[in-house]
Amino acid sequence: MGQSSKFSHIIDFIKTLYPGQDFIPLHEPRFTGNEKKYVADAIDSTFVSSVGAYVNRFEEMMQEITGAKYAVATVNGTAALHMALLVAGVKQGDEVLTQDLSFIATANAISYIGAKPVFLDIDRKNLGLSADVLQAFLDEWGQKGAEGTINKKTGNRIAACVPMHSFGFPCEIDRIAAVCSEWNIPLIEDAAESLGSYYKGKHTGTFGLLGTYSFNGNKTVTCGGGGAIVTNNEQLAKLAKHLTTQAKVPHAWEFNHDYIGYNYRMPNLNAALACAQLEQLAGFVENKRKLAATYKAFFQDIAGIAYCEEAKEAKANYWLNVLLLDNREERDAFLAEANNNGVMSRPAWTLMHKLPMFRDCQHDSVAVSQWVEDRLVNIPSSVRV
Rank of each mutant, 00 (worst) to 15 (best):
M1E: 01
M1D: 01
Q3L: 15
K6T: 15
L17N: 08
P25G: 06
N34C: 04
K36D: 15
E64P: 00
A73T: 12
A84P: 05
A88N: 13
G89A: 09
K91V: 09
Q92N: 07
Q92C: 13
Q99C: 08
A109S: 11
P117L: 11
L120E: 03
I122P: 03
L127Q: 01
G128V: 03
S130T: 02
W141V: 11
K144Q: 15
E147R: 01
N151A: 13
P163H: 12
S166P: 01
S166D: 04
P170R: 09
I173P: 07
I176S: 09
W183H: 10
P186F: 04
D190G: 06
A192F: 11
S194N: 02
G201A: 07
K219F: 05
G226M: 02
G227C: 10
T231I: 06
Q235Y: 02
L236K: 02
A237Q: 06
L243W: 04
T245V: 03
K248D: 03
H251W: 02
P267T: 14
N268T: 12
Q280D: 12
A282F: 02
V285E: 00
A297Y: 02
F299H: 00
Q300N: 14
I302V: 15
I302R: 01
Y307P: 05
Y307K: 02
A311I: 05
K312A: 15
K315R: 08
N321D: 13
L323P: 05
A338N: 11
T350D: 09
M352F: 04
H353K: 12
D360N: 14
D360F: 04
S365T: 09
V368N: 08
W371Q: 10
V377L: 07
S381G: 04
V385I: 11
V385S: 14
